[in-house]
């Protein structure tokens, strides 16, 4: 093996040996030395890699001055050009977790350097970075440090050397919400029957499709006066203008589209569905069967609602990852919010 790969480490004021809560307001500093837990971590890398320095920042400072903190941190990382960045582990510490996550996200997105961190499954920082960084699953308190570091070191070694990671449960990281195709010996029906038999016999079995845990959003306030409200129409039914100008995927969508419908009375006539998850005959006959622009326009004419929002938003729901759905919803919601839309009808097939 040639040169050692370079690791840059991020910790908060506490793990950086600066101090406790009284030092949580400290600005980020960079030290070209190895401080616990990077010290233990460095030892685990053996002669394959080394920690070249430690970034330390107060948890409060980071969360209250995110832009300044990130800009300093990204600069340091850029100058030192490590092969990989490690943050935390943050266990179940909220502010520390958010810092580890925000740094991980920024480093991957802006510098294209891989990041490994460690968090307890309920750390609020997890959702910020789990799809983009590798997050080792660790216990909820620093008592788990001794177990966390070897897991993280193993992940770091593999990634730094360009080796492919195995499945999350094998490698000890939190699932990123990705689906991979694998070749198995037994076909699905046999595996399903095996599982059923195991269940009936009270034996242990492992589902191949664990149900994701969904978070809840508080219901938004109702529209007070429909006759003054702007209503937007959104669908996951793959309804697009004929010819699918934006080439939205028919399954596992990677993007969404928006189309001006301000001058239309209905979708029927110029729209069709490219959704690959249902028989499109009825939808293509009358696209308003999937996204009822026709009736919204009628209600607009009658003054029941104020206005139909000028753009119609669409994507394909089938096989689309939760990660992408969240992204689409966030992006579309932002546009609707900025445009002052008062309510949304979203149809799914």
């Amino acid at each position: 093996m040639g040169e050692k790969f370079k690791v840059l480490y991020y910790v908060n004021q506490f793990f950086g040996q600066i101090g406790g809560e009284d030092k949580a307001g400290m600005k980020p500093v960079y030290k070209e030395e190895i401080i616990e837990p990077a010290m233990g971590f460095n030892g685990l890398l053996k002669d394959e890699g080394e920690v070249i320095g430690t970034l330390i920042c107060g948890d409060n400072y980071f969360n209250e001055n995110k832009e300044e903190a990130l800009s300093y941190i990204l600069n340091v990382i850029k100058e030192n050009n490590p092969d990989i960045v490690v943050t935390g582990p943050a266990f179940n510490a909220g502010r520390y977790g958010m810092a580890c996550a925000e740094i991980a996200k920024a480093v991957v997105e802006e510098l294209n350097i891989p990041v490994v961190t460690g968090m307890y499954i309920e750390n609020p920082g997890l959702d910020v970075c789990k799809s983009i960084a590798i997050v080792a699953e660790v216990s909820d308190s620093a008592a788990g440090m001794r177990k966390a570091l070897p897991t993280m070191a193993k992940l770091v070694k593999k990634i730094a050397k360009g080796e492919e990671l195995g499945l999350p449960e094998e490698e000890g990281y939190i699932p990123q919400g990705k689906r991979l195709t694998v070749i198995v010996e037994k076909r699905g029906s046999q595996r399903a029957v095996d599982m059923l038999l195991a269940r009936l016999n009270g034996e242990e079995f492992e589902t191949e499709l664990p149900m994701p845990v969904f978070d809840q959003v508080d219901p938004a306030d109702a529209i007070k006066d429909l006759s003054k409200a702007t209503i937007a129409l959104v669908t996951s039914g793959g309804m697009v203008p004929l010819g699918n100008p934006d080439r939205i995927q028919s399954a596992s969508a990677q993007k969404w589209g928006k189309y001006d419908v301000s001058k239309r009375d209905a979708l029927t006539g110029e729209y069709c569905t490219i959704h690959g998850g249902f028989d499109p005959v009825y939808a293509n006959e009358i696209p308003d069967r999937v996204a009822p622009l026709d009736m919204l326009k009628e209600y607009e004419k009658e003054g029941i609602i104020g206005k139909v929002f000028e753009y119609f938003y669409t994507t394909t729901g089938t096989g689309t990852s939760v990660g992408n759905s969240v992204k689409f919803g966030t992006e579309i919601g932002k546009e609707l919010k900025e445009a002052g839309v008062d309510g949304v009808i979203l149809t799914s097939t």
Partner: peptide, 11 residues
């Protein structure tokens, strides 16, 4: 859910 997070009621 993500659209509702912006405080816009959605059905």
């Amino acid at each position: 859910k993500e659209i509702e997070r912006y405080g816009i009621p959605i059905v």
